[in-house]
Write a protein that binds this DNA or RNA. Structure first.
Length: 476
DNA sequence: AAACAGACCAACCGCAACTAT
DNA sequence: GATAGTTGCGGTTGGTCTGTT
């Protein structure tokens, strides 16, 4: 249902008015007439589009206020810019979003929050307005249906990322030292982290979705094994969907949307792409298409905004587990699942070539006590400089805790929230700063009322098998 | 066929950041 | 450093379309 500019209600009087504006305004400019103009609002006409397009063709983008002065177009600069960027500029991709684009949007939103412009930078041909409209309508619909707003794989990434220490994450995310570089080893990351810390950056917030970065740390060697190693019959990761979405973790293979700059050819995905703006990999060329990182000394990490979160902050639920393929809504025996969870976890680590610290003794003797990261070992972030190879059990525990968090929401009912977590669940109805969002409390849009069902077409994230929303029972 | 509700889309508004003077 | 102008971004609104009753 695309409404082309030409299809916009174009009354002939409006066109005449616009046309008159051209000559009249030019004359006014020449005569120094300062009579205040009544700028036009509302839908653009084809004539206005033509004028704007012609102007940009001659003078290029920018200086939008000059458009009105130079062409007499009775539109303010903001309106001109908006019209150009959203409708007239070349290489715009019209039409509905592809499933890959939808998934990418979900991932980006999970990581960036309502940063539509930054999200648009990852979706060539798409505008922030388009993405925003898509997300808002889709989210509204899903929330009304009591469905999680994020697909299972994004929920998983969020869940796993909650372990990551923010103070190791955020400076890197926007560190000038790293942005646009090819820093791909722990030493460089440590250096940058230290630099950021030296710059006065302090934060104890947990990291937002960080899996992409974790993968990037492995010097671009992280790949899913082929075929995907999720072979255990009991594992939910046998789902083709996960393998399919593994594209997001395959470096230098394929990009989900074949990213290309608006003015350039498509190119393979890079860690920078995969890191969704938080990446530490990727060269300058890659950087050019990434959203600009803040050059300010105080890195501002953009966590998922609470536009959604503020509406209903709930702990993960069985619905999450269902979404993750963890066995549905009924989980009567926690321990019964421990073994399979352990196995799943190992599979997950294996899948991304993670060697749990306990299994991967430090090979580089790093002063920070980090384990070897010889290209295939995923860096495991643990704060405090404690030798990581002594914390393997802890990591495993944390992994298990993460998974249990997903499966056992009632264990962290609001009234039992630890004091440390309480500030982030203040219950304030106002939308907190995105910077204040604690991913550990991130609401994944999971409904507490039980495993959810699906009824609308968009409930299927393209997942197959048990992971399909349509396989869940009705939530409300 | 008409009325209604929801979805979708384009555009506007206000604010903040940035830049030039 | 202060100020004004410009640009970019995110939230919101209003109109149109589409599907349902």
């Amino acid at each position: 249902m695309e409404k082309s500019p030409e299809a916009a209600p174009t009354s002939s009087p409006e066109e005449e008015k616009a046309a008159e504006g051209v000559h009249g305004e030019e004359a006014a400019d020449q005569e120094g007439d300062v009579t205040p103009l009544v700028l036009k609002k509302g839908p653009w006409t084809a004539a206005e589009d033509a004028m704007l397009t012609d102007h940009v063709r001659r003078h290029g983008e920018g200086n939008w206020n000059a458009v009105q002065r130079m062409t007499g177009l009775l539109r303010c600069g903001k309106s001109c810019r908006l019209r150009w960027t959203n409708h007239l500029r070349p290489n715009l991709k019209k039409g509905s979003f592809s499933p890959d684009e939808e998934l990418l949007i979900a991932q980006l939103h999970a990581q960036l929050g309502n940063k539509w412009a930054r999200m648009a930078a990852h979706l060539p041909g798409r505008t922030d307005n388009e993405i925003k409209n898509y997300w808002n309508t889709r989210t509204k619909r899903r929330q009304r249906s009591g469905l999680p707003v994020y697909p299972p794989e994004v929920q998983l990434q969020l869940a796993l990322s909650k372990r990551c220490r923010y103070d190791e994450f955020s400076p890197l995310a926007s560190s000038p030292q790293l942005s646009g570089t090819t820093a791909t080893n722990v030493q460089e990351l440590d250096a940058a982290s230290a630099a950021a810390a030296a710059a006065g950056y302090t934060s104890s917030r947990p990291a937002p979705l960080d899996l992409a970065r974790q993968l990037a740390v492995t010097n671009q060697t992280v790949q899913f094994l082929s075929p995907p190693p999720f072979s255990a019959p009991s594992s939910p990761w046998t789902r083709p969907s996960f393998a399919r979405n593994a594209q997001y973790f395959q470096f230098a293979h394929s990009s989900p949307v074949s990213p290309s700059t608006p003015n350039g050819p498509a190119r393979p995905a890079t860690p920078a792409d995969l890191s969704l703006g938080y990446g530490v990999g990727g060269g300058a060329a890659d950087q050019s298409r990434l959203p600009p990182l803040s050059p300010s000394p105080g890195p501002r990490v953009e966590l998922p905004s609470n536009q959604l979160l503020g509406q209903q902050v709930m702990p993960p639920t069985a619905a999450t587990a269902a979404g993750l393929g963890l066995g549905g809504a009924a989980l009567p025996d926690h321990q019964q699942n421990a073994a399979s969870l352990e196995k799943m976890l190992q599979e997950l680590h294996d899948a991304i070539k993670v060697v749990p610290p306990a299994l991967a003794p430090a090979a580089n003797g790093d002063a920070g006590g980090r384990p070897g990261v010889g290209g295939t070992v995923l860096e495991r972030h643990v704060g405090g400089g404690v030798p990581e190879n002594k914390l393997g059990g802890q990591h495993r525990d944390e992994d298990m805790e993460t998974l249990f968090d997903l499966m056992m929401p009632t264990l962290t009912a609001p009234e039992t929230v630890p004091p440390a977590a309480a500030p982030n669940q203040s219950g304030s109805t106002s939308q907190p700063s995105s910077d204040e969002q604690d991913p550990s409390t991130v609401d994944l849009g999971v409904d507490l009322q039980g495993a959810g069902g699906a009824s609308s077409s968009d409930q299927d994230w393209g997942l197959d098998g048990v992971c399909q929303w349509s396989n869940m029972s009705r939530i409300c």
